[in-house]
Amino acid sequence: MIEFEKLRVVIGYEFLKHIRRRRLYVILALTLFTEVAVLILLPALQGGYPDNVMAMAAILTVGPALAAIGAVFFSGDAIAGEFESKTGYILFTNPVKRTTLVIGKYISSTAAVTLLITFGYSIVAISLLSIYGSIPIETLESYGMALLYGGSVISITFFFSALSKGGMGATVITLVFLMVISPIVDTVLMLTDTPHWFMLSTAGDSIATVYGGYELFIEGFVPLEHIDRLPFELENPDTSLTSLAMAIYLVTGFIFSIIFGNRRQLV
């Protein structure tokens, strides 16, 4: 049996795992809840939706972005879980390469994240059509950036999963990296006027800034003249550079997760 056939089998059963577990539905519910909250709270607190469809589209990206980050929750135990829960004693005694297992798990996680992000963008599209009667073409670009961001988040999670003792550890480390370390370093670099396109938080921002930059995003909440009071200049991320950064995270995280996953022993 060629390894490609085994890969197909692994992808199928790993995807079944995502479908059967509650986490996927929890993240779907959170995505829906976030979008509904924006759609209800914005007019309730501001007296209406922004005039500019692009500003509204940028604000609504919060849902799909959350879905991309949600990838952490069902990728954290992808590799570590086989060691922690001892399922590896069954799986690894089969004639299948560890690389095939990691690739299969990665592809199925990517498929699940794609499902989540697509769900988020479907809500964005329906909402914009209902409110403004149109969907900006930039939504497609934002969707592409969100998928790339989701892929890089999975790669980083897989990397930590290959190194961590348990799935929970990998999930927490990845979240700390994404939500704490990366934004802090990003802010320091931004305040010191140092290039920061390679930071994953900047890359994540580009999911929303494709619609017209931070200014447009903020316009949905705050009058634009208030932006002048900020102690630093808002430099919009260069989409091509942030795409490159995400691609680098995606590829290196993925390769290292295969290397460390292969080296790991079931002691």
């Binding site: 049996m1 056939e5 085994k6 089998v9 692994v10 059963y13 079944l16 795992k17 059967r20 577990r21 829960s85 001892k86 399922t87 004693y89 069954i90 089969n94 004639p95 299948v96």
Partner: peptide
């Protein structure tokens, strides 16, 4: 050894059997 809790014995054996070709 442990098994994936979300699968049935039939699904588990089908998975492992298919991995073995």
């Amino acid at each position: 050894p442990e098994f994936y809790p979300f699968l049935t014995p039939e699904e588990t054996l089908k998975y492992l059997g298919r991995l073995r070709g």
